[in-house]
Design a binder for these strands. Structure first.
Lengths: 348, 348
DNA sequence: GCGGCGTCATGAATCGTTTCAACGATAGGC
DNA sequence: GCCTATCGTTGAAACGATTCATGACGCCGC
């Protein structure tokens, strides 16, 4: 039933070694032979068995990717970027979504190990990176996505969320706003924490600006609407004149709540800015100002970095104890800069 | 460096066969031995090499999934549903997005074949299913997602788009609307075509209702805004009193265009309904009526069906030419029913 | 005491590909 | 005409887990 190199070899009257060479080193084989073998391959419908190939090679031709949530457009774009770049390098991507649960993340990582992936890209669900560090020590390169390691143990691709928070808040201040409310998900989430930190720094430069924090349990549209309702419930005098939402989903919810009864006008009464610049941000009734993160580039760069790590690990493993010094650790950390996108919701 | 069964066997003072049995048939091994082997596994940090395992087994423990577009929330949800169900069955999912390009779809399918996946779920990018039929003939079960085969060659999970179009349109008619415009992507897309067909049938039942078609090049927010602008440009008398958009992204664009200048009120002047019921539909300024497709269940059911196909193919392959008759082909086609979700944009 | 049975463990054979040392043939240099 | 290089090809070894025929051992009943 299943045709293997042996069958092809027989059909083309060559040895199995030659068939293998046609597949992997065509230039080592005489053109006429190449053609004959390829004809046999086509006729028999031969498909290379990757399991055998990678058993021999000791490694697969795939990488693993674990993100926090497929449903989040930001991560969907990261995945696309990674997938595209990996495809260029001839690598397949094993994809998993942890739904922010450490156990699911662990299950995917275990699966990836069994598959002998070349490396793993992961947006960690928890602050604890020991499992990933151990994975790397076991010889499987790891690149953190949208997260950085405290030490230099793990490579990473991230966006400076502190700067993003700073940019958003300074923009509101520049627009003349003085009473700003930060609406954010669990402050324990690193992204939320950093964005708030950026906001604090921007406010610190202006003594006449007040910053309020409204902590919400999740970064969803629903919670955004909830937050908007809470703000609406206050009397006009005690409301802020600007809201900085920790992500666009929240911002959309807030916007919806404000617009629903028309009580609060955006941006006249309250200016609003979000974060992530998802495709929908430009498509809301009042187009939403936001902080853009280059999601696809993040994914692509993460793959690039992983490829470098793989090369590094490979070289490191082969060279003796007195080998060359480690390359500059700084290069193992890619940090993108967030970009302010001004639209109507802040008066742009 | 890499620890294999041999190392574990040595450490536990047993044979490799026993280690394998501990891994796969623990009940065939004496409890004391199981424990000793597992201790050795833990101490050595042994991780099973899946390539070798599946080389021997002849099959992998994974399935492939190719969707049209990761960026589309509908497909993101299909993927989640499939992933969850596959995980329950102990299968990994190799994931790919074709971006509606046949060549990319083909590349993924080839990759999956090399990986010896157990089966493939695919939302075909083109009308031509011969490649997939051939794949199935080659022994790899295929389940179509959001698409049905013309004949009974391929199993499928789909939603009846004709019925969905019918439901949406009848709802508009029931709400008293008489001049309906269908705004849709390329009519060559099966989904768009079917939804329009449903609309036609609903209109056919009411001689006093007129149906207009506005064909757009893509199902995006941007194109929706374009369509909205075209409608706004007409004088009020020649405008429709209802719009049925072929998906929610289009509907959001239309809504945005209408709301922007406040000229056209939704639903007072024009009622609006979309399709897919993505999470954002409930989150637009005027909450959007839509047709819900159970995306996650589609993904989950597709995996169920694929598992059944795999079992069927396995049984079929082992039994002689005079084996049992094929099971009912009807069971190989799962068709979900779309559901009307009424919100404010149609006066709900 | 012996035959028979059930429970566990063994280790060589196996899967399909890649790799590599070795070989024959052809061409070129002297 | 001989020696060496180069090129193309060969075929067997190797990768690491699983499988299965075989055998060791202990126990029971007669």
């Amino acid at each position: 039933m299943a045709v293997g190199v042996k069958d092809v070899a027989a059909a083309a009257s060559v040895s199995v070694g030659t068939v293998s060479n046609v597949l992997n080193n065509p230039d080592k084989v005489a053109p006429a032979t190449v053609e004959r073998v390829q004809k046999a391959i086509a006729e028999l419908g031969f498909v290379r068995n990757d399991a055998a190939r990678q058993l021999r090679a000791g490694r697969s031709r795939s990488i693993g990717l674990v993100v926090l949530d497929v449903g989040n457009p930001f991560f969907a774009d990261v995945a696309r970027g990674a997938e595209a770049r990996a495809a260029e390098a001839g690598l397949a991507v094993l994809f998993g979504s942890s739904d922010e649960r450490a156990d699911r993340e662990g299950a995917y990582v275990d699966l990836f190990r069994e598959q002998r992936v070349n490396g793993v890209l992961v947006t960690p669900a928890t602050a604890d990176l020991t499992a990933l560090t151990r994975l790397q020590d076991a010889g499987i390169p790891v690149v953190l996505v949208d997260r950085e390691a405290d030490d230099d143990a793990l490579a990473s691709v991230a966006v400076d969320d502190v700067e993003g928070g700073f940019l958003a808040t300074r923009h509101l201040i520049d627009a003349g706003r003085r009473r700003i409310t930060f609406v954010g998900g669990p402050l324990s989430t690193r992204q939320v924490h950093d964005r708030l930190e950026g906001a604090r720094r921007a406010v610190a430069e202006h003594p006449d600006v007040a910053l309020d924090v409204m902590e919400m349990p999740a970064l969803t549209v629903l919670q955004g609407r909830e937050a908007g309702n809470l703000l609406r419930a206050r009397d006009a005098a005690s409301r802020p004149d600007a809201v900085f939402a920790a992500n666009d989903l929240l911002a959309v919810g807030v916007l919806q709540s404000f617009a629903l009864l028309g009580e609060i006008r955006v941006p006249e009464d309250i200016a609003l800015i979000g974060y992530d610049d998802i495709d929908f941000a430009a498509a809301t009734v009042v187009p939403l100002s936001s902080i853009r993160q280059p999601a696809r580039e993040i994914g692509a760069s993460a793959v690039d970095l992983l490829l470098a790590e793989i090369a590094r690990a490979g070289a490191g493993g082969e060279r003796g104890p007195g080998g060359a010094p480690e390359p500059d650790a700084g290069a193992r950390r890619i940090r993108f800069r967030p970009e302010l996108i001004v639209r109507a919701s802040t008066g742009g």
